[in-house]
Design a protein around this nucleic acid. Sequence first.
DNA 1: GTGAAAGCGCTAACAT
DNA 2: ATGTTAGCGCTTTCAC
Lengths: 343, 343
Amino acid sequence: MSKLFPSITIKQVAQEAGVSIQTVSRVVNNRYDVAPETRQRVQEAIARLGYQPNAMARGLASRRSRTLGLITQDFNDPFFTQVTTGAEQEAHEHGYFFMLGSVCCEKEEEPKYLRLLTERHVEGVLLIRGGGFDDADHLLKLQGHGVPVVTTGFYLPGAPFTVIDVDNIDGGWQATRHLIDNGHRQIATITGPKNWKSAQDRLQGYCKALAEAGIDYNETLLGEGSWHHRSGYGAIQAILSRNLAFSAIFAQNDRMAIGAIQALRQHGLQVPENISVIGYDDLPEAEFASPALSTLRQPAVEIGQAATRELIHQIESPEAAPRQLLYNAELIVRNSVLPYRSM
Amino acid sequence: MSKLFPSITIKQVAQEAGVSIQTVSRVVNNRYDVAPETRQRVQEAIARLGYQPNAMARGLASRRSRTLGLITQDFNDPFFTQVTTGAEQEAHEHGYFFMLGSVCCEKEEEPKYLRLLTERHVEGVLLIRGGGFDDADHLLKLQGHGVPVVTTGFYLPGAPFTVIDVDNIDGGWQATRHLIDNGHRQIATITGPKNWKSAQDRLQGYCKALAEAGIDYNETLLGEGSWHHRSGYGAIQAILSRNLAFSAIFAQNDRMAIGAIQALRQHGLQVPENISVIGYDDLPEAEFASPALSTLRQPAVEIGQAATRELIHQIESPEAAPRQLLYNAELIVRNSVLPYRSM
DNA sequence: GTGAAAGCGCTAACAT
DNA sequence: ATGTTAGCGCTTTCAC
């Protein structure tokens, strides 16, 4: 149980190279005040001994852990994992590592995980989340202690966090607009959970597009889902059972769109011949759904990269003000939308 | 840039509680040799000051980082993310954290990431990978240095790592057997990359089931994919273009199965009426594919949990011998397989 | 350009 | 049951 790390220390390298430990430290940290010849000698000693600096000792002495915390909500959602992939890449490029805080915890547990991350002296926290917050006290406190927080997927109005996200109002607008441009006027929509910021925004975009086209907003054509396939299926079943007329659906993510298509099919309705459907995300599976799904692409990997870049920037320049960066979703036209024709 | 961690130290807690540093340490570490009343007093001081032990200092002094390394290959593959989810849960239950080593690196980069993880003194490494190894020198060396390695998704024959995986030979056999039981005898298969252990094993199970049924193995009915939707699509296109007769397909994962179904459909072939298809994984999307995909379910989350449990066990009981734990895949029957009938 | 001394916050081993 | 003394391996500060 009592583990041993019989590793080479800076002391041994110093001895091997015939210099003091500071000189080794300087070489390791790429300081400029080392004679080229000395540097060379030290580097050889390092290579010969296979020396690796001990990050914990370094962190303790320098008060920098070069570690970031990642808190995310749902690794079953490909959007989240793609953001994570981008985040991880970017961190490594800057010499940082991510600690996996939690991937599926209840909202109530978040402060606990944050505390654990603090013990580990993470220098910043990336929060990939959808929303569902009423209070962000623990996050504010964290940032107050000098640990910057960057969020993706949600934000508290007025909270001083850097936010990197997709412009979901615009995305919802684009999706709905595409349907309207194809002549549809009775457009059902399946939203994500109402307490998600992205769901609210996409819905707002939907309403805006409707209003611009002079179409009345009809609440009975709205279903709330949970982002999962099954919830899209259920939402459309419910709308169908109400016997409402509609010719198109805007599902707020691809998975719900695919679930919706299955419900439609089971009711004898073909997509896109009878009903047009547009999704959101552009998951890999969207292209291979039947029919291939028209959707809005979110640049998830870029978002992860940008968020991490911002986080590191804030760590290294604490005076940097929090900012908001909104990416645009891109309309991907495939085969699930057809011009409207009355039946 | 020079960060500050103006946090409460053990010293301040000691002062506040009127005891020595040692006593605080004992309370924090739940040692039994503290008088209940003293313990109480210390705990109050801790609460009052909001003290959080510094994990780096702890790690340096105790030589235990309570940190694990995670190296994985592809977060776009839901199987990998589900394993990660399970791993992360289990780690937290034991008071460990995972550092995200790399999620998409080239095989050549792995030693580099391992080295970086070593600098951080991870106490063990979980490798979620598919294969593609000819040498595991760096892993062997790591384990030789007392850092246990647990793998999922692949193993080197004879390498002394604990392996937690699915019995893919059995899984491949079950899938093929299900097709044979439905009267199919000309069964195409789409494999993963040949250098993946799981692909090899599933193929071996396929061959075994064929042989048992007295069916000759026909190499022209085999296509190699990359696990992605598109590669399943391409593999079936290729087989179709050769004008070979077959009535069923075993795709080694769901995504390739879905891609294959699209290729079939574009050639005017309906699933399951003309061709039966079975996948592997049971991703959420399998149930909502059209038709709903019959497949083999892998207990991915459990595998992640078990792998982490084993890893921690090896860390805490270094004498523990590596072992292999194979889970069974479970046949999920849906609507993509129909009994054979000649056309 | 290089070295010596001090200390980061904690635990381990020994005291008492 | 509690305190004292040494470090863990490194960076920092300040000499030279």
